[in-house]
Structure formats: structure tokens, C-alpha cells
Design a protein around this nucleic acid. Sequence first.
DNA 1: GAACAGTGTTCTATATTATAAAACAAATGG
DNA 2: CCATTTGTTTTATAATATAGAACACTGTTC
Lengths: 252, 252
Amino acid sequence: MPIIQALDRALKIVDLFTEATPLLKITEISERMGLHKSTVHSLLKTLQLHGYIDQDADSGKYRLGLTYLVKSGLLLGSMDIRTAALPYLKKVSSQTGQTVHLVILDGREGVYIEKVEGELAAIRYSRIGRRVPLHSSAVGKVLIAFREQEALVKLLSGYDFTAQTKYTITDYALFLNELAKVRSRGYAVDDQENELGVRCAAVPVRGYGGGVAAAISISTMVVSVSEEELEGYVRIIQSAADEISSDLGFRS
Amino acid sequence: MPIIQALDRALKIVDLFTEATPLLKITEISERMGLHKSTVHSLLKTLQLHGYIDQDADSGKYRLGLTYLVKSGLLLGSMDIRTAALPYLKKVSSQTGQTVHLVILDGREGVYIEKVEGELAAIRYSRIGRRVPLHSSAVGKVLIAFREQEALVKLLSGYDFTAQTKYTITDYALFLNELAKVRSRGYAVDDQENELGVRCAAVPVRGYGGGVAAAISISTMVVSVSEEELEGYVRIIQSAADEISSDLGFRS
DNA sequence: GAACAGTGTTCTATATTATAAAACAAATGG
DNA sequence: CCATTTGTTTTATAATATAGAACACTGTTC
């Protein structure tokens, strides 16, 4: 097990910032580490670049950076939503026999963070961690439909509406129209827009703050499930999503 | 500004763990970083050593470690207590003309995290970040007096009762007795036990959870302030501490 | 006010250390 | 059961971290 000295030293330096000594000078650090000033300086600057430490404006001393807050929030957030959702996803899948997904927004794409395969359908293209376009998927539509107009415009400026199938919406105005429909109905549909032969529906999961934290989708094969049947499934994933949202602390 | 490559790469790797992709295989990481597997492996193992990433038990995949939670808690905690306390410390100092300290526990020592000098007294030995023994200071006594018996015994096992002055309590049993007195009175006194000519009083500041988060002390010169006057000061720092505790979310 | 001790920073040489290739083992899957 | 893909270990080399020296800057002390 080879240990990278530079990295190891840097993380040990960070450990020097305790409740007792939240502010440290570069000289103090080099003394306590038994390292040269210049060595410590280089390590500190690199840590600072990533926000692991900050430099006090006037005193010039170093303190722990906000990256720790950011990453810990991320840690808690993602842990919660998956563990909260999984039992409900399994329930929906066993009720319907279809494949169910949990997807969150990452930049300008959706990302599958959970998948429960149904007995009836075999959806191949999805996999946990895999990315999915926003404009060609039900989950993608749900993930951005409820955002504020301003944020939405910014997100979609320069967006690449590449056609995935012949049914994919490739026009900006048409897509905005589609999103308005999603808002009014409360759920999104993708009718072979992402993959031929596959029709999906998706509903939003809301987090503590009320924002859309994730989307749940159900994927069906057009040859075996009609549009009417899919609408029935929508009600099922809707109530599952509501229960998950409630578990996450959302009150409507 | 020289950037340490190894450290920079390691922190970039950590950044790959997003809400969207909380679990990553070593191969995925090396692909996305454009680095060799073995290089990534070494970096990961070193990060893991410090708890910045964890390895999933059965899948073998990596995820963000709990160190982020620990350090962010630390960050919030220390930031809150100092900013919350400072205005009250200044008020006490200007009211009394004496020097006021804010001290927290770090291992088996107290550490000054704030100091407001009074006009009348010039306390030389203290300084922010400097350490003070638990057994010879009023703040030290307060910091540990309200801990549970079990934790207290563990903390004091093998404790070094070095005499700071001829008045220092150097006996374990006598010290436990002193701590009992602190608990019953609600405040602690150090009568030239840490420095000849200096007499201090200290009271606890309680955090959100109810535990003793810090201690506030007032330091006086024995030649200018009588024991009776010091008792008057105790009431002043007591109410200051209560207000700070309240600001920190403590409800009695 | 001048000398001084302290600070953080930049630059440069060299020698240590990170790096990636290869070889290995262990698991996965068709 | 062979073929892939995985994570890990080992090893050589070359790139990189390291610390020394020199720098500029601040604030203290006499």
C-alpha cells in the first residue's frame, strides 16, 4: 500500500486546524509538521485552490475552507435520497413489473442514481451513474420543468438538442411548450423520444426545501403497455414520489 | 505559485464524487482523470487513510468519506462560538476593566480562543491559541467539571498534575473535590494556582446540546481586586455566559 | 529612527518521490 | 471454460516535491 507523501502531508496539515486552533500561521504549521516553510507554502496554496483552506483577509492566517461544508452537504443529501427512495422504488416495480429509475440533475444532464429492474421489461440503456439527456427523457423534463424561468433560460442557453430518435423534440420553443405541459399536468412523458420502442413517465420528488430533488420514472415497452395503462402507472409513481418527498421532509 | 501535482490530482479526484455519481470504481476514475490505474490507486489509498473517501464493503466502489462531515461540524462549531461570544466579552471587559478570556477544551488542555484585554490589568501569560493546564486554571476546572464521571476518570487517568505555583492543586483526590465544588457553585476560581499574583474566576458556556462548549474567565491581580470584588465579577460573566449560551441555542 | 527579528513569498538545484508500465490475481460474464 | 474486466502489487525511470537561499515586508525594540 504505497502512501503518497505529498498528499499525506497535506491532509495532516489540515488536521492541525482543530477547534482549539482554527487559525494557523504558515510558520506554526511548518514547525509542528517539521517541514520547511516553502514546502508548507506550496501545499497550502494547492489546498487553498480547492477551498480546503482559506486565508484570513487581514491577518494572513489560514483557516479551514468551506469545501468541507459543501462536500458534507453533498454527502448527506445524496445518501438520504437514495436510501429514502429505494424501498418505494422496489414496491412500484413489484406492483407493475416494470423498471423504475431514480434520477437527479447534474449540470445539463440527468444521472441515474438508482434502478430497480422489473420482471416484464428489460430496459438496457440505463445503468446507475449513466447520464441521460434532459430534452429526450421524461425524467429530464421533470428535473428542469419546475425551475424558475430565469434559471431555466440560463440552463438551456446553448443547449444541444441532438435527436436521439425520430420522435425527439429538437426545437427550443417546442421544448419550452412541452415543459409547460409538464408543469400543468404534474408529470412528464417521453414517447420513444430517447429510445425507439420505449415509453416512459416521470414525476418529481421534492426535498426538504421544496425544490425538485430527483425524478422517478417508469419505463415501458410500447408493444406491451398502452398509453392508458401508462397513465395508471403515473398514479402509482406519483404516490410513491409523494411518500418519498414526505420522508425527505417536504410539506406541501 | 507552485501547485503540487499529486495533491491537486487527489483533490480533483474527490471532486468527481458528485450528487450524481456518489459511487465510483477505480477504473472510472482513472478514465475520467486520464491517469493510470496504479496512480489513482495510490492516491485513493492515501485519501482513504485520512477518511476523505470510503470503500463500499461489498461492491468495492469508493465514496466520499466521513471526514468531510467531521471537519464541517468543526468549522461551524468554532466559528459560531467565537462570533457569538466576542461582543459579550468586550462588554464585560469594558464594564470591569479586567481581562476576559474564552477557552475551549482540546484533549487534556484548555486553549484560549479569544481574549479581550482590560484597561486595568495586563495579563501577559495568555494569548489566543496558547494552552493552559486544566488543573491549575479556573477555565480548566469549568471545562471538565460538568462532564460525566466515566469520561472524567478517563480524561484524568495518568494526568500530570505539575505544580505551576506553590498554590497549584497537585493531588488527584483534592482536585476531584475541587471539581465537585465547581459543580455545586456553578463557577470555578483559581487563586494564584496558575500564576502568582493572578486570581481568576470562570463560568461555563453551554452549546446547543447542553454540554459545556467553552469557558469564560475574568482575570484579576490579587493586589488590586479583593475576593469579594471577584465574586461580583462572577455574576457579570455568569450573565454574559448565559446570554452566549442562549445565542448558541441552549435552553435550560 | 535605525537595526533587528519576525513574517510570507519566490526562485532554483538536486535527489527523492510520484508515476505509469507490466505483470499479477481475482472476479465477472458470455 | 475461455475471455474480459476488474483491483492490486512490483519495479524502473523520469518527473516532481523538496528545502535551501535570497527576497520583500511588517512590526518591534532599543
